[in-house]
């Protein structure tokens, strides 16, 4: 006798040889269990699609009353919003303009700020400093927006009032400043990812030709990361235009058109109190009567907001994919 055979020592299996029958027979219970688990996970996996469709469908369903009664053009081009008046008006143009103003203002600050910081972290900082700076950006991202709004209220607003000689510092400019802080971590982290994904042999080739560090950044890294950086700006835009609490607390929330006439031209007025799309939903949504026309109108405002962010995020998505594709093919 040679080696102990497992098969004779272990009684668990009746037959040693695998039979054809056993091979082609599926255990009903095991298979049913596995089948059900797979279907359950398929259901959970597709949940995201259903939720997105549900949100879109719901905005349309709840907003349809107001759309029918008021009309889409009144919503987009109407200049006055008086939902509680006896002759209610639902022109959301002031909110749209305010949202765009505040967001563009924020980006004017946050884009150079974020991109230069991203260049520093990704390309210039030594490794140890880099490791210390990354958590800084992450902590920015977890700052609750309501706390930033509070800071805007007590710190930035008085400064704005003093500098521009205003009686009330809650203006579009105040909101833009604090909103730039809000958009900053998004811009830094996406731009940094994009710069990091530039292959190092691109850069090494240039260094080998005697280029300075800055020439490499300017001529190699930035052009290669261009799509990703534009995506960072787009995502920053999406983040800022959808932000509620900071603008709600910092922008003053007046419902008039934020414009002034200057040399015969109509220009946006950054030193006036403004109300954004998001702020308007937050202010009126908490006590609106369910099912009223006003309630329905708020869903139209939500729809406008959704469409703006959807388009912006979609473009950002395409740009990120384009950079990935371009760098992979090279």
């Amino acid at each position: 006798m040679r080696l102990p055979s497992l098969k004779t020592n272990v009684e668990s299996t009746q037959s040693v040889v695998v039979t054809k029958q056993k091979l082609t027979q599926k255990s009903f219970v095991t298979n049913l269990g596995d089948y059900l688990m797979e279907k359950l996970f398929l259901l959970l996996g597709t949940l995201a699609i259903f939720i997105l469709l549900l949100i879109v469908g719901f905005l349309i369903r709840e907003g349809s009353d107001a759309l029918r009664e008021v009309g889409i053009s009144e919503f987009i081009f109407g200049q006055s919003w008086y939902p509680s008046s006896s002759e209610p008006r639902y022109g959301a143009l002031p909110f749209i303009i305010s949202s765009v103003m505040v967001t563009v203002g924020a980006l004017l600050l946050a884009v150079p700020w974020g991109i230069f910081t991203a260049i520093f972290i990704s390309e210039i900082a030594p490794k140890r400093l880099k490791e210390m700076l990354k958590p800084v950006v992450e902590i920015f991202a977890i700052f609750p927006s309501v706390v930033l709004g509070f800071i805007a209220l007590i710190v930035i607003s008085p400064i704005v009032a003093n500098v521009f000689g205003l009686s009330n510092g809650l203006t579009a400019v105040t909101a833009a400043v604090i909103l730039s802080v809000m958009a900053l971590p998004t811009i830094i982290s996406i731009a940094e990812d994009s710069l990091n994904s530039v292959p190092s042999d691109f850069k090494e080739g240039a260094y080998a030709l005697g280029a300075t560090k800055w020439e490499v950044i300017k001529n190699i890294s930035l052009p290669a990361a261009k799509s990703g950086i534009i995506a960072a700006v787009m995502l920053g835009f999406g983040r800022a235009v959808g932000e509620t609490m900071t603008v709600l607390m910092a922008a003053g929330n007046a419902i008039d058109m934020p414009i002034q006439h200057f040399l015969g031209l109509t220009v946006p007025d950054f030193l006036t109190s403004v109300r954004t799309l998001t702020a308007n939903i937050a202010i009126e949504g908490s006590d609106v009567a369910w099912g009223s026309l006003h309630y329905s109108a708020l869903f139209v405002v939500g729809m406008i907001l959704f469409v703006i962010t959807f388009i912006v995020n979609l473009i950002a998505d395409l740009l990120i994919n384009r950079q990935r594709g371009a760098l992979r093919n090279d």
Partner: peptide
């Protein structure tokens, strides 16, 4: 990317 206030609505 959907704004939080839209989730609220």
């Amino acid at each position: 990317g959907v704004p939080s206030i839209v989730y609220g609505l």
